[in-house]
Simulated assay, not measured.
Amino acid sequence: MTSGLRIRQIVFACESTERFSELTAILGLQTPFPDPGVAEFGLVNEVYALGDQFIEIVVPTTPEAPARRFLDRNGEGGYMAIFQVPDIQASRARLDAQKLRRVWDIDLDDISASHIHPADIGGAIVSIDEPRPASAWRWGGPDWDQRSAVGGVCGITLSAPDPVALGKTWATALGADYDDARNCFDTEDGPVCFQHGETTGITAYHLDLPDKASILKRASEQGCEIDARGFEFCGVQMLL
């Protein structure tokens, strides 16, 4: 495990805002935060607190939005992974040394963040964020801790034709140690793993939630495909 490296927010790109209410119903989430700042990227969104982590759904509102291009290429799916890092300046220097382009940087009193170009890192947009204090999270909105459901995000799985290359690129970018035997690197919340697939992208988000049987029942009622491990939502396996 890399000290201070956390999975703080997972992101879906979806076609319709109807997905907001669907996910709320399935997971029993609390009142979300619609972040007006994502209009800069041609989006509307909702951000849901789950423990001290977050699930975000973005829906493009303009044809020029990067998420619109993602949807046109891939369909609905896992769009972004936001990692908390202990030292943003060291992380940015590491990215620059790897020649991984930063396509968006911000430095505010309570958080600094950088987005890595998905064409460089592969699989998704990756964001590195350093909140101040470490327990804070601006992107969750005001008083997110009062709107948080019980549970958490405990892993991410990606696929690629060359999963080892993708995994090592992510691990190096995030300052993590890649485990060749498991094809994973560890965070304080759980592993980020890589498996072989014909396409490159996020295939699963792993959630630690109470009452799995009720979640699967509600997912089925929302028209999601379910199995013993979890359900499919917005093109991603939600493994419980």
Results as ranks from 00 to 15, higher is better:
residue 4 G to V: 06
residue 4 G to Y: 00
residue 4 G to Q: 04
residue 4 G to S: 04
residue 6 R to I: 05
residue 8 R to C: 01
residue 12 F to E: 03
residue 14 C to G: 11
residue 18 E to K: 08
residue 19 R to E: 15
residue 27 L to I: 07
residue 32 P to Y: 13
residue 33 F to E: 01
residue 38 V to F: 06
residue 39 A to K: 15
residue 40 E to C: 03
residue 41 F to G: 03
residue 42 G to V: 07
residue 43 L to G: 11
residue 48 Y to Q: 10
residue 51 G to R: 12
residue 56 E to I: 09
residue 63 P to M: 05
residue 65 A to V: 07
residue 65 A to C: 06
residue 67 A to G: 05
residue 68 R to L: 03
residue 70 F to H: 13
residue 71 L to N: 04
residue 71 L to I: 06
residue 74 N to T: 11
residue 75 G to S: 09
residue 77 G to T: 08
residue 84 Q to H: 05
residue 85 V to K: 03
residue 87 D to M: 13
residue 88 I to G: 01
residue 89 Q to D: 14
residue 93 A to I: 10
residue 95 L to E: 00
residue 100 L to G: 04
residue 101 R to Y: 01
residue 102 R to E: 02
residue 102 R to G: 02
residue 102 R to T: 05
residue 104 W to K: 14
residue 104 W to G: 03
residue 107 D to P: 03
residue 108 L to M: 10
residue 110 D to H: 06
residue 112 S to T: 12
residue 114 S to H: 12
residue 114 S to W: 08
residue 115 H to K: 09
residue 116 I to K: 04
residue 120 D to H: 13
residue 120 D to M: 04
residue 124 A to C: 08
residue 126 V to E: 02
residue 127 S to F: 12
residue 130 E to V: 10
residue 130 E to I: 10
residue 138 R to G: 07
residue 141 G to I: 11
residue 143 D to I: 07
residue 146 Q to H: 15
residue 146 Q to P: 11
residue 146 Q to I: 12
residue 148 S to R: 10
residue 148 S to N: 04
residue 152 G to C: 11
residue 153 V to A: 08
residue 155 G to R: 07
residue 156 I to T: 01
residue 156 I to N: 00
residue 156 I to K: 03
residue 157 T to H: 11
residue 157 T to S: 09
residue 159 S to W: 02
residue 159 S to G: 11
residue 160 A to C: 09
residue 163 P to E: 03
residue 165 A to G: 15
residue 167 G to H: 06
residue 169 T to F: 07
residue 169 T to R: 15
residue 171 A to D: 14
residue 173 A to E: 03
residue 175 G to R: 05
residue 177 D to R: 15
residue 179 D to M: 05
residue 179 D to F: 04
residue 182 R to M: 06
residue 185 F to T: 00
residue 190 G to I: 01
residue 197 G to L: 02
residue 197 G to H: 02
residue 198 E to F: 15
residue 199 T to D: 14
residue 200 T to V: 14
residue 204 A to E: 08
residue 204 A to K: 08
residue 205 Y to M: 05
residue 205 Y to E: 00
residue 208 D to N: 11
residue 210 P to H: 02
residue 211 D to Y: 09
residue 214 S to N: 13
residue 215 I to D: 08
residue 218 R to L: 12
residue 219 A to W: 10
residue 220 S to I: 10
residue 222 Q to T: 14
residue 222 Q to Y: 14
residue 226 I to P: 00
residue 239 L to D: 04
residue 240 L to M: 10
